[in-house]
Design a protein around this nucleic acid. Structure first.
Length: 570
DNA sequence: TTCCCAACGTA
DNA sequence: CGTACGTTGGGAAT
């Protein structure tokens, strides 16, 4: 198996029940095995290949794959949008129109996949005459467990993965490398690699879970919403206990109905356009009913979204909070997570705790978006400002403003804010950092015109999703979206390059990344590994940013701390 | 049953 | 008229 294949070669990998399909150098191998992890680990050791697979979700088998090419992840990098089904990936790589979206619902019932190869007219060809992926291969029926040919098909499928990878690589090579002094593979190729690693990391995060101290979580929830109800009737009663004091002020209304809350507030003399917390907060002391409502809302949020039911549904018996992870959202490619992993209220952070004998190593990138802007725009003044630990200090000096004003001005420039105090400061930004502002304005203009933009690292951000309306408000919104996407997207690329480097450094150790939060990494490691993990995080940032922003002169900084509980970090 | 909105948490 | 995401409940549309 894999005889004569050279080290570091691309190796197609497809895992099916009871077997593995491999391909490399124009050959393919169907390998029956019930232990794909061991097989893969052996190949990893011997060849250290560029593992090439259709999608990380399908291949995760427990072995560490160091270098990889995830066709779905790279497809989304090149094409933007959400689709990553094999039909769309194949078609785009061959510059053919995307096939109809596969149905969301699982195939209800099917035959052996041997005699029932519907769309392919009884042949066993993965690609139809029209040059599209055959339906039975696209939806996985071709690899059904009862199908005796599935391992041979896996090898054929692995071979086709290499075909797509080759075509994707040619597309990546056509994209510009915008670094000042390129080194190693071109930047879009490096982005493809780190996006692929992030796709694997996303699958690993789903499986690993975030260590959560259930007792602490239950205490926090209990303090806010009361004891765990023992029956549905009890739940109703406890709900009334929470609601009634507020209803005493606002009247006999349903507090969960915004319309009724609005009229209740009007009866108290508050003529507000909506009932959002930030709008009601100024009136907190004006009437006890407002304070009661605001406090009720906070408790209700915990009770409904992060209450006992959430704990029961998402926290395993092993004390791990698990949710599905996606390596890239559709807008700018940031990672997303379900089960509340990305919007856990600060109130609950004390419950995120290391297991016995372990610690959490937490690191966040400091002021990452303005530093990223400096790198992608190559604005000399802003690049110089990144040498400071606090980037806003030199910016304030350059603008002749105080630090809070400087911060608002920078954020306003990146996010497209035009109102409020930002106006005058923005004009000074234009003088001090013309290249950075021009970079942002160029993205905004593309967005306004409905033209797609590409991030520094090569990700396509589609504007078509916004619709082609000529409405002024829609045009402005598209402009703001594009202006923000080139910064947020580039920051996401850097973050994933960093995370992928940390992941690689943890290979072979018991340490794991357990949370990614846009600019923050949380690692769970044995106590004895704490200092080496902290050092790894720092060197990984130097390596990742050194490649990503080679020659830019931009300095990236990370704040690293070793803690027992997430809440102990600053 | 499905979809959209308001609301609010995170970055 | 700052961006993105996920989750909830209500309420309208189907």
């Amino acid at each position: 198996m894999l005889e004569g294949v050279s080290r570091s070669a691309a190796v197609g990998l497809v895992v099916v029940p009871g077997g593995v399909g491999l391909a490399a150098d124009g050959q393919r191998w169907a390998v029956p095995t019930d232990d794909p992890a061991t097989l893969i680990a052996q190949v990893e050791e011997r060849l250290a290949p560029r593992w090439t697979f259709w999608a990380a979700r399908g291949v995760f088998v427990g072995a560490h794959l160091a270098r990889c090419h995830d066709l779905a992840a790279v497809h989304r990098l090149l094409e933007g949008g959400w689709r990553e089904d094999t039909g769309a990936v194949w078609a785009a790589a061959h510059e053919r129109p995307a096939p109809a979206e596969p149905s969301r619902r699982p195939v209800a019932s099917h035959g052996t996949g041997l005699l029932d190869l519907d769309g392919a007219e009884g042949t066993d060809e993965p690609i139809t005459d029209a040059g599209q992926v055959a339906p039975t291969w696209a939806d996985g029926r071709a690899f059904d467990v009862e199908n005796p040919l599935r391992t041979e098909r896996a090898a054929r499928w692995a071979e086709l993965a290499l075909v797509v990878a080759g075509r994707q690589n040619r597309r990546l090579a056509e994209l510009p490398d915008r670094r000042r002094t390129p080194s190693g593979p071109a930047l879009p190729v490096q982005t493809a690699f780190s996006e692929s690693a992030a796709a694997l990391l996303a699958v690993e995060l789903s499986r690993t879970g975030l260590p959560l101290d259930r007792a602490t979580a239950e205490t926090i929830v209990g303090d806010s919403v009361g004891p765990r109800p023992s029956s549905p009737a009890e739940e109703l009663r406890l709900r009334a206990v929470r609601d009634d004091p507020v209803r005493a002020h606002l009247g006999p209304i349903d507090l969960r109905s915004n319309a009724q809350v609005l009229s209740g507030l009007r009866n108290l003399g508050f003529d507000v356009p909506d009932t959002r917390a930030h709008r009601l907060e100024p009136f907190r002391d004006a009437h006890p009913g407002v304070a009661a409502l605001l406090d009720w809302r906070k408790a209700e949020r915990l009770a409904t979204t992060y209450g006992y039911r959430w704990l029961d549904e998402h926290v395993g018996r092993d004390g791990r909070l698990r949710g599905e992870w996606s390596a890239a959202d559709a807008a700018a490619g940031r990672m997303t997570a379900q089960a509340g992993l990305h919007n856990l209220p600060a109130e609950l952070r004390p419950a995120v705790a290391a297991e016995p004998g372990h610690v959490l190593v937490r690191a966040d990138l400091g002021q990452v978006e303005p530093r990223v802007l400096a790198a992608v725009s190559q604005d000399p003044g802003l690049v110089a400002a990144t040498r400071d630990d606090d980037l806003y200090a030199p910016v304030a000096a350059a603008l002749g403003a105080d630090r809070p004003t400087a911060k608002i001005a920078v954020l306003a420039a990146m996010y497209g804010q035009t109102s409020g105090a930002a106006g005058e400061a923005l004009r000074r930004m234009e003088k001090a950092y013309p290249r950075a502002l021009a970079y942002l304005r160029s993205a905004e203009e593309a967005g306004r015109q409905g033209r797609d933009v590409r991030t520094y690292g090569g990700r396509l951000v589609r504007m078509a999703a916004f619709g082609a309306g000529e409405d002024g408000a829609v045009t402005a919104a598209r402009g703001r979206f594009a202006r923000n996407a080139v910064v947020q997207g580039a920051a996401a690329e850097l973050f994933k390059a960093w995370a992928a480097t940390v992941r690689a450094g943890l290979a072979g150790t018991p340490g794991r990344i357990v949370l990614c939060l846009h600019d923050e990494l949380l690692l769970h490691v044995p106590e004895s590994q704490a200092s080496s993990a902290a050092a790894l995080i720092t060197t990984a940032l130097e390596q990742a940013s050194g490649r990503w922003a080679a020659g830019s002169g931009v300095r990236f900084v990370a704040d690293v701390s070793v803690v027992r509980r997430w809440s102990e970090a600053k």
